[in-house]
Design a protein around this nucleic acid. Sequence first.
DNA 1: ATCACTCTACTTACTGGTTAGTAAGGTGTC
DNA 2: GACACCTTACTAACCAGTAAGTAGAGTGAT
Lengths: 194, 194
Amino acid sequence: MKPVSNASKDTQKRILDIAEQLLLTRGFNAFSYQHISSALGVRNAAVHYHFPRKTDLGVALVQRYRRRFARFMEAHASLDPLQQLEGYFELTDAYFQQDEQICPSGILTTEYHTLPEEIQLEANAFITEMRDWAKTIARRGRDERVMTYPGTPEAMGEVMFAALQGGLQLARIDAGILDTIKQQIRDLLKVEKS
Amino acid sequence: MKPVSNASKDTQKRILDIAEQLLLTRGFNAFSYQHISSALGVRNAAVHYHFPRKTDLGVALVQRYRRRFARFMEAHASLDPLQQLEGYFELTDAYFQQDEQICPSGILTTEYHTLPEEIQLEANAFITEMRDWAKTIARRGRDERVMTYPGTPEAMGEVMFAALQGGLQLARIDAGILDTIKQQIRDLLKVEKS
DNA sequence: ATCACTCTACTTACTGGTTAGTAAGGTGTC
DNA sequence: GACACCTTACTAACCAGTAAGTAGAGTGAT
């Protein structure tokens, strides 16, 4: 149990918060330690003190997403599939409403070939977890006879996830597209908006 | 009508070809004039001679996409909707098979907030054209009674386009996802693979 | 209680590399 | 000799990352 001061923990969290905002609006390659340090009111080297290399910061960001998404799944585990679907939609909306952020998986896959391997590995795990959650909703929806669709739950989950990822990006061009896609997914699953 | 030498036209085309490859694999912010000039075997300033600012190069790239996509639509205009759908799928496949490239609209929307306004405007127009084509396929498919789906053709087109855009990106994590999504779209439209 | 010491969380000051972009000069072709 | 198409040589800004120093808070011995 190593003691970490409150100041350190707080600064570290604030760095992650600022970096997250920059990641989801500008992408990993288009933000610098300067952006973070000036937003935080400290010097460049202070950021390097907490996250020596930018790769460390990237890995920490994705790991935090994974912990957060694990808590999200846990909180929604006992809900029925229709509520889980709406919860998934709300998560998507929440991104866009905050500075037109997009889903982290969209950033990570688009910039994939330019990312350090350590971040790629975390991204793989994170995205697999998100895709699996979409598939789980589709599977439970069919098992509990509240969703009706052709094909396998796996395929339906992939389409739902891919459409929301793409939809979030396209919403930057046309904000209305996100609602259209959410409603069409409901229609394709033959469910009513709850 | 200003005369342009063959050498110039050729170099200009080769710059665009290299830049396109870099754009679709690395993104606009993650490639430089150095990347292009070294791949082309010329000096940095030679690229600036043809495209003074990087913005000029970006605009030229998107405009070329638009011309190319216009020709694509013209070539497929007289086909039946099922063939148009498969043509759309083939276009998607072609991107991925070439160095895991993704759809330009995925790059442009993901990096949107970091792009110069001139490129944003071209991107808006290009993406609108691609989305409209997807909607046209969905509309004609229903009108000619070869596709069956809930919701409006507009909504179905948006979901198809967004799912393919997201699917291309996710294919970098799991190559199989693209085929899964294509087949699920066929199933959702109640059409057979042609 | 106070001096000596240690540690955290920074700062200042820097390096070497990369970036887009430019100015001026050269060379071959019509 | 005019022009297209390049080159060499450069600038200023930015990038990630580092080395060395410091202020202040806490600790421990006397």
